[in-house]
Nucleic acid binder design. Sequence first.
DNA 1: AAGATAAGTGAGCGAGCGCTCATTTAAAAA
DNA 2: TTTTTAAATGAGCGCTCGCTCACTTATCTT
Lengths: 196, 196
Amino acid sequence: MRPRDESKISAINEKAIEMIADEGLENFGINKLARAVGVSPATIYIYYPDKDELINQISISEGLKMCSAVLDGFDENMNFEEGLWIQWQNRASYAMANQRGTRFFDQLRHSTYKERMQEAIGEEMKKKAGGFVKNAIKRGEINDMPMEVYWSVAFAPLYSLVKFNEDGYSLGGRKFKLTQKIMKETFSYVIKALKK
Amino acid sequence: MRPRDESKISAINEKAIEMIADEGLENFGINKLARAVGVSPATIYIYYPDKDELINQISISEGLKMCSAVLDGFDENMNFEEGLWIQWQNRASYAMANQRGTRFFDQLRHSTYKERMQEAIGEEMKKKAGGFVKNAIKRGEINDMPMEVYWSVAFAPLYSLVKFNEDGYSLGGRKFKLTQKIMKETFSYVIKALKK
DNA sequence: AAGATAAGTGAGCGAGCGCTCATTTAAAAA
DNA sequence: TTTTTAAATGAGCGCTCGCTCACTTATCTT
């Protein structure tokens, strides 16, 4: 029998990410995607049962990719400040090196497709980063607090900076650029907030 | 001449917000909207030149509504902790009282429609809340820092909590509910981060 | 009451949507 | 080499999309 053309599959996946990141979820379509990749619409349906599942599956795999990038070189037994800083650096590096993936991810995080992706990522993150926080609490480095409070204080500022950087949005006059210096500055505030 | 039926206009606007909030931007359409409101598609085009402008205008007005709600009872000469806390409370109250508006807002913040809305809101916020931060810096209550860093530390955690609350998402086992107690707890971390 | 004007309509245009099917193509198994 | 199998195709289905237009309706001015 004829084997799957794996390069075709990844071409479909990558083009889908590109189109959603660049033109928005609301302008994404299967026929358009097929034309852009250079395959028949029917070919896409060999690999995905329908449009929703295509988006779900791609979002999950892209989410897990980002997840593992964020946790690279990270160990849940690290001391708090060091471990959190590694996650910050990883997240920022990923955002810089993979702007398209970040924009894609951001489109889905607030769409009707978020549930499946959050499930997959949440599970992964809970396993690997959850223990880290519990260790820090046990060691008395930070207060005991709900996970949602922890996440909101420890990571929401970073994600906000990354988004400012993506958008090139300016609250001040000039265009914002997320430098290492600014990241360290913001990180120091977050550490001040969390450390006892 | 026949006058505009203002109740019809607001019915269109409210239904559009409802549909986008509930079904997502990618499932929103003019024919669908017209059917749901009980008017002709053509009627909608009396008030809006096209679909994009409808979304833009509604998003701007909804954004400004939220803006003024957040700044209610707020004065830029307040001391830092008090002024920030009022904005936090206002934002949370708005989110609780107007969940649909918040979900609508969240759909657009990361879509291709974000620019126009951010322009309008950014302008409004810069005027009224920008002076507040500069005062706090001048008084020596907080460090001088880029506006993006300030926003990311001062507000991103709150918006993150609001989103956890909206989604009913659970990082811990049970469903998350944004209580006054949790908000105060998180606020105390943010204040600890920012105050000298 | 008549005329003027803009609000409001319903049918439907062309285009593009998600998706399917009869068919062809390519590579593994025989 | 022939057979078998699934990958891959392209035309096109039924439908909905954003949007328009010839027309009717309601309310104002005269």
